[in-house]
């Protein structure tokens, strides 16, 4: 370790550095430059390879769907269950993967994507629950998880009244559990 240059405050080490011959200085510089460029090439290569797998543009299918007027949902009568849900409409599940829930005073859209691992959950009207076929997660009619491995309720999707007066669901805008109410992930019915 007689060539070790670590502590520049150390008088002896400084002296040693000053006394480096030109040949030694060159050799050490070249070594540093060599390893440095090796590290840079390796790092750049890794970075490029990883970045390569994340493209700039994604080609996605349309994500907004018109689901009919609020009046149409208001018109269908029924008894509310203990979670305030009157009925769960499954018409958009097969193609667009969401349910529309008609509660006492509001309509909201629940994604059919299980909060656990993304399987499509099924609605069992006779049991008044959603069940996931993959790992047996179960949710109440309002999307609240109560059994199985699901870590949180079913997510809600953005639902608004569009210019045509129809309800519009946007499946690309997802609301977290905590912000259902705050962000108004529902449409109030008169």
């Amino acid at each position: 370790m007689h060539r070790g240059v670590c502590d520049m405050n150390n008088e002896a080490a400084l002296q040693q550095l000053v006394e480096l011959s030109r040949r030694e200085f060159l050799a050490r510089g070249l070594t540093a430059a060599g390893w440095g460029s090796f590290a840079v090439v390796l790092g750049a290569g890794t970075l490029e390879t990883v970045r390569f797998f994340f493209p700039r543009v994604l080609y996605q299918p349309p994500s907004t769907f018109r689901i009919g007027t609020p009046e149409a949902f208001l018109a269908r009568k029924g008894e509310a269950d203990e979670y305030g849900v009157i009925f769960v409409d499954e018409r958009w599940k097969p193609e667009q993967r969401f349910f529309v829930v008609r509660a006492k005073d509001r309509v909201y859209a629940l994604t059919a994507r299980c909060a656990h691992l993304g399987c499509t959950v099924n609605w069992f009207s006779s049991l008044d629950i959603f069940k996931c076929p993959c790992h047996g997660s179960q949710y109440h009619s309002d999307g609240k998880n109560f059994a199985g491995p699901a870590p949180r309720p079913l997510d809600r999707l953005r639902i608004t009244v569009g210019v045509s007066g129809d309800l519009v669901v946007d499946t690309s805008i997802i609301y977290s559990v905590e912000r259902f109410e705050a962000d108004g992930a529902f449409v109030a019915l008169a």
Binding site: Q96, T120, N122, P133
Partner: peptide, 9 residues
């Protein structure tokens, strides 16, 4: 078919 999950999957 992304809309229909096999039951059981």
């Amino acid at each position: 078919n992304p809309g229909v999950t096999e039951n059981p999957a």
